[in-house]
Measured scan of single mutants.
Amino acid sequence: MKVIFLKDVKGKGKKGEIKNVADGYANNFLFKQGLAIEATPANLKALE
């Protein structure tokens, strides 16, 4: 799953980066902790 990092995550990505991560990692950790959002077309456009 492609995500946009909202904060730096050690060993995974930095704020503003768009990366592929495992679905479970994104859903169970990144999204719940507010560290990333899904890289949907709307979210990508808002990032610009």
Results as ranks from 00 to 15, higher is better:
M1K: 11
M1H: 04
M1S: 06
M1V: 14
M1Y: 08
K2G: 06
K2N: 11
K2V: 13
K2T: 13
K2C: 15
K2H: 09
V3L: 02
V3P: 02
V3W: 00
V3H: 00
V3S: 01
I4L: 08
I4W: 00
I4D: 01
I4H: 01
I4C: 06
I4S: 01
F5H: 01
F5Y: 09
F5K: 00
F5G: 00
F5C: 02
F5D: 01
F5N: 01
L6S: 02
L6Y: 00
L6R: 01
K7A: 12
K7M: 12
K7I: 11
D8G: 05
D8Q: 03
D8H: 07
D8V: 02
D8A: 05
D8T: 10
V9T: 03
V9E: 01
V9L: 06
V9N: 00
V9Q: 01
V9H: 03
V9F: 04
K10N: 11
K10P: 15
K10D: 12
K10W: 13
K10R: 11
G11W: 06
G11P: 03
G11E: 05
G11Y: 07
K12W: 15
K12Y: 15
K12F: 15
K12S: 13
K12C: 15
K12E: 13
K12G: 13
K12P: 01
K12R: 12
K12L: 15
G13H: 10
G13C: 07
G13M: 03
G13A: 12
G13K: 00
G13T: 02
G13L: 02
G13F: 13
G13R: 00
K14W: 08
K14D: 05
K14F: 11
K14Q: 10
K14S: 08
K14G: 05
K15S: 08
K15C: 11
K15A: 13
K15T: 09
G16Q: 02
G16D: 03
G16R: 03
G16V: 00
G16F: 08
G16Y: 07
G16A: 03
G16W: 09
E17D: 12
E17V: 04
E17A: 04
E17S: 05
E17T: 06
E17N: 04
E17H: 04
I18E: 03
I18K: 03
I18A: 03
I18V: 13
I18H: 03
I18P: 01
I18R: 01
I18S: 03
I18G: 00
I18M: 07
K19P: 00
K19R: 10
K19V: 13
K19F: 06
K19H: 11
N20W: 15
N20H: 14
N20A: 13
N20K: 13
N20T: 14
N20Y: 15
V21I: 09
V21Q: 02
V21A: 04
V21S: 02
V21L: 06
V21M: 09
V21W: 02
A22E: 15
A22G: 11
A22T: 13
A22R: 11
D23G: 12
D23Q: 14
D23Y: 14
D23T: 15
D23W: 15
G24M: 11
G24P: 07
G24S: 15
G24D: 15
G24Y: 14
G24W: 15
G24E: 15
G24F: 12
G24I: 12
Y25N: 04
Y25V: 08
Y25P: 06
Y25F: 12
Y25T: 05
Y25E: 09
Y25S: 04
Y25W: 09
A26K: 03
A26R: 03
A26M: 05
A26I: 05
A26F: 14
A26P: 02
A26L: 07
N27D: 10
N27P: 07
N27A: 12
N27Y: 14
N27Q: 14
N27S: 10
N27F: 14
N28E: 15
N28T: 07
N28M: 09
N28S: 10
N28K: 10
N28W: 07
N28A: 09
N28L: 09
F29E: 10
F29G: 05
F29K: 07
F29H: 11
F29T: 09
F29N: 08
L30T: 00
L30P: 04
L30M: 02
L30H: 01
L30R: 00
L30Q: 01
F31L: 13
F31V: 10
F31A: 05
F31M: 06
F31K: 07
F31P: 06
F31Y: 06
K32N: 12
K32F: 10
K32H: 09
K32P: 15
K32D: 12
K32T: 13
K32I: 13
K32V: 14
K32R: 10
Q33D: 09
G34H: 09
G34A: 07
G34R: 06
G34D: 06
L35Q: 03
L35S: 03
A36F: 02
A36M: 02
A36D: 01
A36P: 00
A36H: 00
A36N: 00
A36G: 05
A36K: 00
I37W: 05
I37N: 01
I37T: 05
I37G: 01
I37Y: 04
I37A: 06
I37V: 13
I37C: 08
E38A: 12
E38Q: 10
E38F: 04
E38R: 10
E38S: 07
E38M: 10
A39I: 04
A39W: 11
A39K: 00
T40D: 06
T40L: 05
T40Y: 03
T40I: 05
T40S: 10
T40F: 04
T40K: 03
T40G: 04
T40R: 03
P41C: 12
P41I: 13
P41Y: 09
P41A: 12
A42Q: 12
A42G: 10
A42I: 09
A42T: 10
A42E: 14
N43S: 08
N43I: 08
N43V: 08
N43T: 07
N43F: 08
N43W: 05
N43D: 05
N43K: 05
L44F: 04
L44S: 03
L44K: 06
L44D: 03
L44E: 05
L44C: 12
L44W: 03
L44I: 14
K45S: 11
K45D: 09
K45P: 06
K45E: 12
A46I: 13
A46V: 10
A46G: 11
A46C: 14
A46P: 05
A46M: 13
A46H: 11
A46N: 11
A46W: 14
L47N: 08
L47P: 05
L47Q: 09
L47C: 08
L47A: 09
L47T: 07
L47G: 05
L47V: 10
L47H: 10
E48A: 14
E48H: 12
E48F: 12
E48W: 09
E48S: 11
E48K: 11
E48C: 14
E48Y: 12
